[in-house]
Design a protein around this nucleic acid. Sequence first.
DNA 1: ACCTGAACACCGTTCAAGT
DNA 2: ACCTGAACACCGTTCAAGT
Lengths: 187, 187
Amino acid sequence: MAPGTREALLDAAARLLDAGGVEAVTLREVGRQAGVSHNAPYKHFPSKEALLAALAARELERRADHAEPASAERLRDTLHGYIRWALDSPALFRLIFGPWTVDSPELHHAATAAQARFVDTVLAAQQADLLPAGDPVRLASLLRSLAHGAADLASAGHLAANGKGHADPEDLVDDLLAYLHPAAKAR
Amino acid sequence: MAPGTREALLDAAARLLDAGGVEAVTLREVGRQAGVSHNAPYKHFPSKEALLAALAARELERRADHAEPASAERLRDTLHGYIRWALDSPALFRLIFGPWTVDSPELHHAATAAQARFVDTVLAAQQADLLPAGDPVRLASLLRSLAHGAADLASAGHLAANGKGHADPEDLVDDLLAYLHPAAKAR
DNA sequence: ACCTGAACACCGTTCAAGT
DNA sequence: ACCTGAACACCGTTCAAGT
């Protein structure tokens, strides 16, 4: 059996991405760390961006594997987990949710599955009267957009980080849930 | 008087950024389009990133110059304008709000001024009972995070774009304002 | 004070071979 | 089927000169 050069390349890319951001991921260094020549990657991926897409898909799938089943109680945890992930792995986060010029079916599938799972969580929260009624897909987009924006701004240092009015991304998520909760009860 | 090589360099960089994204902005092409040698930029900026920071600051300042004074009625327009800007100039938007490793005082100042102006708008909307009471800085962070996240996800194609539940970033902003408005009246 | 041209150490990608 | 090594056309940055 093969020692799995493809996996070794992805491992090296993941390491480089985490350590130095996306610009530290060069095919030459990826090859070097995987113990192959500087263009062995081309035997496994058609381009650098395709390798990055495969990496993004793999990380998204791993995250999905560790996810607990959707439930109303897990709404807040899911959003907080999303933010912690973004702050812990900013380069990976920006890579996954950045603009792609190649479209990888695996990446598309993994992203779609993650979204669907979150919609299930929103639906459960609506049924438990923790969220107002209405289209769950649209409400999920609202919650996801807030978590995404707060995490993105915070990780780049663009969220007021000092003095009064300071709010962590987690605080903003909690604020939104609090605004939505009375709206749910009052329906 | 000088023909303004510095401005010509920034103009060229802005053109390249808009046309081909940040990776199309190479100092060599910037120099070429500005009619100078490939390293004349180094006489005006210490590094490529410093040139990009100057560009980001200039664009942010220009936007501020065209802004109308803060008022309660302009809250929705301001948020919609932010989203339209992000979708019209995605590369510029991602550049400005991305992570910087050099810190440019001009960029920092321009970003801080824009945030302060938005807080004024939020405050006016609170006084007009269009938004709930509470720390205006924190509420502004909530609104800004949502607009930012929705615009970022949409511009990268990560917002459910088809079928039911489809929501434009503008729709999500309106949804949030609607959820916040009754909360304001009921206080 | 501002600019040029050569040079250095990198890139992504392609291609002709090798096993 | 997978890998190597040389090559090509680029990069950002530095440096010695020129006016």
